[in-house]
Structure formats: C-alpha cells, structure tokens
Design a protein around this nucleic acid. Structure first.
Lengths: 335, 335
DNA sequence: CTGAAAGCGCTTACAG
DNA sequence: CTGAAAGCGCTTACAG
C-alpha cells in the first residue's frame, strides 16, 4: 500500500502538499494537484485509518442529535445505543449533544435544530419530519454531514446515511406469524398508528401480502390509534365488539392501550405486535402475545455513532447510504 | 489518558523500559518494574490501540484454523464469515491458514493440528473434539492463544474465547414455534443428531420445556439420525409410520433427508428445524417448514477473526470468554 | 538491565 | 502556493 511520503517523492513535492490535495484543503497549484491525484489513483492509495486516528487523537467532534423521543418508548433504546457506543473507546472523541422533543411537529423540530446550531457542530443526526421547511433547512446546512434516523428525507445534499427499518418486511414477518397461528384461517383486525405515515402503511401492506397464502384468513378491519394508548384502547375495544377478530396485529405504538382491551375481551384473541419495550416484552413472556417483530433500536443508535466516528475520525465514508436494520422475530423465549 | 512517555518521566526512566514492563518483555530491574506498574495502575493507563496498530502495521499474524467443515454445510457460512472479515481493512494483518476436516474424529483433528504447527502460528481457532488427547495437546500449546469454535473445551489454559450457540435457548425457541402452530395440541416427533452430543440434548430439553405450556402437546418420540441424510430419511420415514406426528422438530443436521420422508407422507406434517442452508431455506420459502432457528454461522466466523485481530494487533483482550451468538428465528419472509 | 534514536503514516502550525 | 519540522503514542533495533 502506497503512502503519502511515497506519493510525495513520486510527484516531486512535499508530504504537506500531498496532504492538502488528498484532503481538499485547497491552495495547491492545479497542475500539482492533478499530478498527485493521478499518482494516488494509479497506485490505489488508501489512507491509513490508524495514523489518522492517532494524529487527531486529541480532537473532539460534536454530534448534534434531534430525536422525537419524548413520550415514545421506542427511542429509549435508540438513545441507549448511541450513548453506549459513544462512551466506548472505539468511538473516542465523539461527543453527543442531544435534544429530545415530543411528536412530529415541524416547528418544534426546527426550534431544536436552531438551538443545537448555536454551537459549532461537526455532524447532525435527526429523526426528520419530511416537510419542505425541514428539507430546506437541512439542505442549507451542507456540507455538514447528516444522518437521518428512523425516518428518511430523500435527496438531501449532505446526507451521509439513513438508518432505519424495512417496514414492508416487518409487516410480512408479522403476517407469517399470523399464518402460523391460524392454520384453519380466521378473522384479523389491524390497529395502525396513522394512515398518513408511509412506514405504517407499508407494514399493513406487507402483512396482507403474507397472510394471503391462506385464503381462509381475512383481514376484516384496519383502524388508526394515532400512536396513543388511550385512543388505542377505545379503537381496539370497539373493533373487538364489532368485528370479533381471532387475531389482532398492532403495527405501530399504543400497543399497551390496545392490550388492555384485548384482556377485557370475553374470547381469547391472539396478538402479534411490533417493537420491544418493557410492556410488550412482559405480554410476550406471559403468553398474551404470540410474537414481536423488532427493528433493533439499540443497534440503530450504536450504528449511527459508529458511522459518524468512522467518517469524522477515520475519514471512512460508509459504503452505502441506506442501512436497514434486520427485522427480528422475538418469541416467548427470546433473550 | 496517561501515556508511556509520561509514565517514563514520572518513574524517572525511559520509554523503552516502560514498554518492556507493560508488555512483559522481561529484563527489567524488579524495583523499576514495580514502580512503573504502580504508576500505570494509579493513572489507569490504557494503551492506545491506534498507535499499536500503526507501529505494527507491517506485521502479519498467522491464524491456524482446524474446522470440521467437510460434508457439513453449516460450516460454509462460518468459513465465509472468517474469510470476509480477514479480507477487510479493519482486520489488516490477519492471515488465515485453514485446514478443513471431516467429522469428529480425534485422530484426524490431531493430524490437522500437527500440519498447521509445522509453521509458526500466532493463534489457533478450532472446533475441538472434547477428548482427553485433544485437551492435552491443546493445553500443551500455551501460551498460544486459542479460540474454540462452535464446540467448547473447558479449562484450557490459553483459551482466549469460545464462540458458539446457546443450545438450550435454541431448543426453547423451536418449542415456541411448535406451541404457536399447534394451538389445539398434537403429537410431536423429534429427530436429533446424537444422544451423545450435549448440544443436541440441550436442544431437545429446551424444546420440551417450551412446549410444556400446552399440556395437549405431546413429544411422543425422539430418534437419532447421526447427522446423516440417508439415515435421517429412514428414521423419519419410520417415525411417521409408527407415531403419526403432527409436527416434527429436526434439531441437528440431516434435515434434507428427513424432509424427503415428510413430503412422501400422506398427511400434512408441520416442521420446525435449525440452521439456514440453501436446502432448508428453500423449504422455508415454499411453506414446507414453519420456521428455522439459526445460530448465525457467518457471525461466528467473523467474530473469531475480529477477536483475534483485537488481541494480536491491538492487544485488546475480549471482555469475556464466552461469546454466544443470539439464536434467530427465521420465517418465510426473513431476508 | 537501560536509554537514545529512528520510525510507523499522517496532520499541524510555521516560515517563506 | 510550498516545504521543513515537530508531533500523535507506541515499538524496534542498537549501543552500552
């Protein structure tokens, strides 16, 4: 593997100049620039991450995080994952500045962003609302590296990575469970978060696709709970009364509220749901739920820090932009 | 974080001597030794992995691998995982020398080991047979760092890590699937590899435990197939005729042979099995199997290389010895 | 048994 | 726009 020193020799210049070219620090004679680049290309130069890490050992990188975690348990593990990873020696130098907000309000999100930007940031991680205002604001931040978490915004100039879930696949796996548990068919009700969130709709779509292998399974009803436990209770209660489902699929948040209604029902109703939380996990272990399909929130958080560490400290850009966490099926005895 | 240079100043000696103490290179005045150690302890010295990696950048480490992969598809992915990881830049410097053998024969294993040891090795990874002769041979290799893969040998002096599966949990998860799929109970047959392998027995035990939640589920029969497809066909065929199972649990290899008998049966029989291979995966996707529970063979291989890289190149010892890969439940739509 | 020096591959002031 | 020098934290010969 060729080094900067050798490139400098070959190009008849100094290591400093090669460094300037290779790292876009500007102020280099265009001819020399081209010459260095040419040599680097020919010899397949790749920088040594350890040397980089060693020399920039003292430097701190501030990573701003805007996350709508308030009142949404799912993000607890995402936060845990990023904090754990940032405190590891292998992410030495990354400092997280976290602003937690509630819900998906554009104004709140922009406000939190402004607060963060009052100090210098080296990178930003955000669970963005996909509206024009947020898009414009983020786009204007270039070349600040941005990681979108859990929800994506397309065509962002300086988007380094998206980290999240394959919703369609998540729905299909829940459909697989339903198919397993209803060998003789049956009626299925779905409680979703919002008809306006593409992730939720994709889950329902994937679920329908998967249960279609057994024509005796009918999805009789899909209702919204706005990710709210109280509303979820109401909606589920009514659905049970009106549709008499054999199985219910909770494909968003508000599962705890819905389960209340399930337990009050007179007939036994099978349940499959998404995301691991103390509450859902307890239902699973007690046998009140067949399965959970999770999107690895902890790993979402740790992956985010890891990607930014590689980029900021080691100058390693991720190989691809989209990082889908594998959906995992959790059963009663999953650890 | 304190550095070698600072320790040297504090101890009134040179960096060379500190290096000798901290890395057990011997030939140091005991008093100075104690003094340096004392200072390092007080200040919580931890070496800088990047500096280490940078300085030993040119060095190659030879890792010998003895693996009983011949005729056992499961290990294809283990091998793939270690090869992929070794070719990554983050494992630069690790060179694998692999000897593949067939079956669990003590003599063959020792023979392969001797071949490897003709050249100098920096570490050894092995899927050991747990017999006295193998134990003695491995133990005599100290201080050569050893990683046991997939099967373990206890109390090995220089065992750096064991990487493998939690068999009991694997069995429980298969039991969970059976419980889901037999809501009204039913007869279950188990086809295992060997009554003499503790891993296999643990799976059966875990399975029994899990299905016990439904007293209508009866495990009527457990039979051995010696991990062999032909025998597996015979055994399964006879079991179907004699016990009329509603569900069969294949808890070891030889699943392809067994499935042949299942497909020839007159009644539909549900199946749950372990480990992902092209064959089992196809059955899963076609709907001939309910689920597979896997032990992440690819990750077993990559983890092995990763652990040895951290140890050999970065002088980082793993935090714990036992690395259990999480058992994963794969359904029809798992990717 | 010990220390001074050079070097790993890169970056960072500094002087020109 | 460019180069020489020092330094990141560690290891490796080498001379004593």
């Amino acid at each position: 593997m060729i080094t900067i020193k050798e490139i400098a020799q070959l190009a008849g210049t100094s290591r400093g100049t090669v460094d300037r070219v290779l790292n876009d620090r500007g102020k280099v004679n265009p001819l020399m620039q081209e010459r260095v680049l040419q040599i680097a290309r020919e010899h397949g130069y790749r920088s040594n991450p350890y040397a980089k890490a060693l020399v920039s050992g003292k430097q701190k990188y501030r990573v701003g995080v805007v996350i709508n975690s308030v009142g949404n348990e799912f993000f607890d593990d995402v936060l845990l994952g990023m904090r754990d990873e940032a405190s590891q020696s292998r992410a030495y130098g990354i400092e997280l500045v976290i602003r937690e907000i509630k819900g998906w309000d554009e104004g709140e999100q922009l406000g939190a962003l402004d607060m963060l930007l009052q100090d210098d940031l080296d990178a930003l991680a955000i669970t963005p609302v996909d509206t024009p205002a947020v898009y414009d604001r983020l786009n204007a931040l270039a070349p600040l590296p941005i990681v979108t978490l859990n929800t994506d915004i397309h065509k962002l100039d300086s988007k380094l990575a998206f980290i999240g879930c394959d919703y369609l696949n998540s729905g299909r796996l829940c459909g697989d469970i339903a198919t397993l548990a209803l060998p003789k068919g049956g009626r299925v009700g779905v409680v979703t978060g919002s008809f306006h969130l593409s992730g939720h709709n994709q889950r329902v779509e994937g679920f329908r696709e998967a249960v279609a292998v057994n024509p005796l399974i009918q999805v009789t009803d899909v209702r919204e709970n706005n990710d709210d436990n109280d509303l979820s209770y109401e909606v589920t209660h009514r659905m049970i009364a009106e549709c008499a489902p054999d199985l219910i699929y909770f494909c968003a948040a508000g599962t705890a509220g819905g389960m209340q209604a399930v337990r009050e029902a007179e007939r036994a109703i099978k349940v499959v749901a998404v995301d691991d939380s103390p509450v859902t996990r307890q239902y699973l272990e007690q046998g009140d739920m067949l399965a959970l399909v999770t999107q690895q929130p902890y790993k979402q958080g740790s992956t985010m820090v890891n990607i930014l560490y590689n980029y900021l400290v080691l100058s390693l850009r991720p190989e691809h932009v989209h990082h889908y966490m594998e959906n995992q099926v959790r059963l009663r005895h999953s650890i």
